[in-house]
Design a protein around this nucleic acid. Sequence first.
RNA 1: GCCCGGGUGGCGGAAUGGCAGACGCGGCGGACUCAAAAUCCGCUGUCCGAAAGGGCGUGUGGGUUCAAAUCCCACCCCGGGCACCA
Length: 839
Amino acid sequence: MPEGSPAQYRPTEIEPRWQQYWVDHASYEVDNDDPRPRAYVLCMYPYPSGAAHMGHVRNYTFGDLLTRYRTMKGEAVLSPMGFDSFGLPAENAAIRTGVHPREFTDQRIEELTSSLTRIGGVYDWRRTLRSHDPEYIRWTQWIFLQFLEAGLAFREKGTVNWCPGCQTVLANEQVVDGRCERSDDPVERRDLDQWYFRITDYAQQLLDDLEGLDWPERVVTQQRNWIGRSEGVEFEMPICDAEGSIRSDGLSMRVFTTRPDTSYGMTFCVLAPESPLVEQITSSEEAASVSAFVEQVRNTSEIDRLSTEGDLGKRGTFTGAYALNPFTGKPVPVYLADYVLATYGTGAVMAVPGEDQRDHDFASAFELPVIPTVARPEGFEGGAYAGEGESINSPSPDQGAVPGPDLNGMGMADAKAAAIAWLESEGIGEATVNFRLRDWLVSRQRFWGCPIPVVYCDTCGIQPVPEEELPVLAPDDVEFTPTGQSPLQSHEGFLHTSCPSCGGPARRESDTMDTFVDSSWYFLRFCDPWSEGAPFSSDAVESWMPVDQYIGGAEHAVLHLMYARFFTKALADLGVAPEHLREPFQNLFTQGMIRLAGSKMSKSRGNLIAPEEILERWGADSLRLAHLAVKPPEEDVDWEDFGLEGCSRFLNRLWRLAVPGSALLETVERREGEPTEADLQVARSSHRLIEEVTEAYERWSYNVAVARVMAHLNELYRYVQGDAGVHTETLDRALDTLIELTAPATPHITAELWALRHDGTHVHERSWPTADPSMLVEATATMVVQVNGKVRDRVEVPADADEARCIEVARSSEKVAKLLDGEPRKVIARPPKVVNFVT
RNA sequence: GCCCGGGUGGCGGAAUGGCAGACGCGGCGGACUCAAAAUCCGCUGUCCGAAAGGGCGUGUGGGUUCAAAUCCCACCCCGGGCACCA
């Protein structure tokens, strides 16, 4: 055995050596002027919570495989790694232990960096970034100021979500079922002045541009739902009394509906309890019950208000006022109900119990009439009918003239159009598009985040911090108290400043930005992390963006992924990013999560499997291979199903056969010269493997790729241990191919074996193998012979046999002949796969 | 309720109109060994059968087709998302 060829595979010895090699030789650093075709492969940058957990390992294994694979395919692959390093855990730790969040965070970044290296991940570390770096803060703040100037950032008072656990406000996206997405505390409503980003300006674009993305349908649907576009019409309804006499003050309510075709079925309308109109229209008789109701709603938690449970009769009340239905010219009563949201549409709706189930339920509770306006299909039973049908019940002339149009007999689309046209021509209303998407609330009452770079001056009002004074950094001499209040709010040294405009005394903003702001542009900074005069140069971004493959968890479907899309569009429109860069992530892959005993692995559940122990026992390559082999990557996976033994066994088998001086080959007869048919079969199988593995990598079927590779190694073992001896060149080529094909998946063992087999050269620097087409053609094929669709025999036919020849061979099968009683009625032949005799 | 996924051996899964169960785990048997581990070889859907062989089989029921896990219709179950958004 040559020196340096240990008989045994020892992952813990070879892995650190190669990890060091890839760093020392800058193997995966790419420059912006690299001449090769470009690819940008990006895994969502992690929040540094310490050593990597299994979810990280899974995510970064896929990303790393892709980086190495595409590099071998000849591309310049940009594969950067950074840290989403602002966030509440560091601040909470500071409150507990007194350690400054920066120290805490830097420590954890070091741990995470080290575990990313230990699983074999390769990155261009020159480009690394951390959200809390002063340079990164500078540009996050700079972007905020651009937004401010463009009117995309604004401060507004409104009812907001407050998380008592996190002691801060939250964006709508960060509230799930009335609870904080992070801490799970029930959120409270508070009326506060806060900073927002005007993401609603981009609602239509965010919706339209989903079209061209290669994203999982699931994520696209979630974004579509979240944006929630609906087309309809807004129109005015004058407030009146029970007889229909319009008030002298000309008050009116504006309603939004998507079903103007059902306007003749309106038997009441409903106003949000928060509406400013409530006070003005409530009659004296109803004043007491209305104010009691408004008070009751104010005290209802978000969770209860969202619930569909509860007695509808208690969830609404009559105002004593009426509004004039412009279609009929008749008054309908105005109610309040907690399910009508002040923040959507006009905060007021027309109610049509005939065609809307919720209105129908409400009408039943308050004994209000129902007028159907759409013809029901035969046999329809139930309250409201929301389906397609002919319009009915527009009042006919003999019932007395009405102002509105006659919609009778029209289909839904025509009736809608006619109703809208009439409203517009009368000047009562206009067609409108409404979105569910709300502006993004970005201010947070926290310390460990990017400070919002504005000051408040008593004379000049809100003033942006001048660009040359950026970054605004939080002070270090702070004390974290158990109250949970951000120390910035009481740090006079930080708060006291002078107004950049008038020079007078001013106060700094003490709120910081949502950490999702940091992650909304980091992928742009990666293109050009050295940029000094701007967050990045447009040219650098131009050359790498959009990200060719983005990889991360599906839990960010409407958070990070929506915000990052908004940022990209806004920055492009502001001329900071290339104008035509409309989308940041062309391809998105969302990997499944890892469960243990059926439940999600998480620190809070205390059911973590530490990758460290696995790495020590089995090595990084076995762990990586197990992640790839266990399941299709997009599916959730149980830790119990990981086949570490099988993967480790495979790598050991590969080692024993491929290591120079393999003991396995000592007693095997080695042949040179012309290969036999058996040798050629092995060679052909190797070329087929190239095709299969390449195709499997391309379509993210890593579990299949691993299966094929394992099957091929089994075949090589049978070849070596058979009686016919081994054709040296055939075996060596097949093993080399196998090593090349697995190099992206299990980088350390393949690097080691290749170096041992080929004078210290590097498998990862080789170009991706391609199959020789002539080796993909088989001389014969196994053809299935069926009788009445049932498989009765298998026969060998020449691969190029025609129909007649196939049928002839099929007929000569004894098994088939026994079953064929005379001439078959019909024969179907699909050479060279199948012949089917139909009797 | 609506919209997406999905349902295949003991388990994870493969096969996207043409050989169901690749590959791995687990199990069984054999070789090596004083023995065990490791390793190597073989078997392993199910039922009937001593065997040869045959029947059945991809959630359920129907359909299309020479041929269906795969396409169509209806239903059941599991997972995810949305859900007073007017």
